Amino acid sequence: MASQPVTHQPRVLVVEDEFIIALDLSETVRDLGYRVEGPYANKGHAFIAIDQEMPDVAILDVMTADGEVFPLADALTEAGVPIIFHSGHITSCEIAQRYPSAQAASKPCPPDRLIAMIETACGHAH
Rank of each mutant, 00 (worst) to 15 (best):
K43N: 06
C93E: 04
E37K: 10
Q103E: 09
L60N: 00
Y99W: 04
D51G: 14
P100H: 03
V36D: 08
A104Y: 09
R113Q: 11
I48K: 13
V29N: 13
T91C: 06
A46T: 12
P82Y: 00
L76G: 00
G33D: 09
L76W: 08
F70V: 02
T77S: 11
A75L: 07
E68H: 11
D112Q: 12
T77N: 11
L72I: 02
E68R: 12
T91A: 03
D66L: 14
T77L: 03
E94R: 03
L76A: 04
P55Y: 07
L72A: 02
D31W: 12
P108V: 15
V36E: 09
F47A: 05
F70Y: 13
A73M: 00
P39K: 14
C109M: 02
K43L: 06
I115L: 10
A49L: 02
I83Q: 05
D66S: 14
H45Q: 13
A58M: 06
D66N: 14
H89A: 13
L114P: 06
Q97L: 03
P111G: 10
M63C: 05
I95T: 00
I50H: 04
V62Y: 09
Q103K: 11
D61Y: 00
Q103R: 15
I48S: 08
R98K: 13
A79L: 05
G67I: 13
V57L: 02
I90V: 13
I48C: 04
D51Y: 01
A58T: 06
K107W: 10
